[in-house]
Amino acid sequence: MSKEKAQKTEISSEDIVIKIVGMHKWYGDFHVLKNINLNVKKRERIVVCGPSGSGKSTLIRCINRLEEHQKGQIIVDGIELTKDLKNIEKVRSEVGMVFQHFNLFPHLTIVENLTIGPIWVRKTPKKEAVETAMYYLEKVQIAEQAAKFPGQLSGGQQQRVAIARSLCMKPNIMLFDEATSALDPEMVKEVLDVMISLAQDGMTMVVVTHEMGFAKSVAHRVLFMDEGEIIEENSPDEFFNHPKNDRTKMFLSQILH
């Protein structure tokens, strides 16, 4: 596996924060993930793409154990994911996740959505949690909506709140599961902008997306998955200009028109 290929200059540290070795997953008899090997270094940004049903969402959902893998190893921040609940909760509090459908808590206000994690998981005092929440709401440019409920916000605004909610837990790693796929076209940019600014701050990111522009400009590495396997792994330049694998070529020709 070629790990060193697509390093941009800013990654100096060799710390591996996500290590996946020989990982398999089945849904019943269906083999969704086949022999996945992946190392993600600190501050590295990885884009995972591929046709729908290729297992890319399942892969990143395994990283914070929303899905359970059956074979192989996943080590996040030095903690191996096993059945041990304590470890799982620890990993989850270190890894932020942004969902396709936002999954904000509709019965809580925006600011309560952001503080619930810090207050109950990190035991942060309420005042401090609210300050942190307002800081991140400012950062995603939505602070004036703090007292509203999620149902009153547009999709793009909700997704930015969801990103801020993850950031409030001060995660080391952020996972994005098709964060822009459920948005109206005019709202995609405001969410991508937030993701780009996160990238500029040096966040370690694993992003499942169909936004190839984002992949080109932000990713250190692009993974292409098909039928549960990582088929190609390359720098964005190489990936888009000189894809090696036939299936990658076909996928790109379909997606780039």
Binding site: S93, G96, H101, F105, I116, G117
Partner: peptide
């Protein structure tokens, strides 16, 4: 309840009791 609500609660590290008490049961 939408499955996403459980996943969101899981992903910020809330445990079972917290998830039920703060997220799922109120809704």
């Amino acid at each position: 309840m939408n499955k996403g609500q459980f996943e969101a609660a899981d992903s910020i590290g809330l445990n079972y009791i917290q998830t039920m008490r703060l997220i799922i049961l109120p809704q």
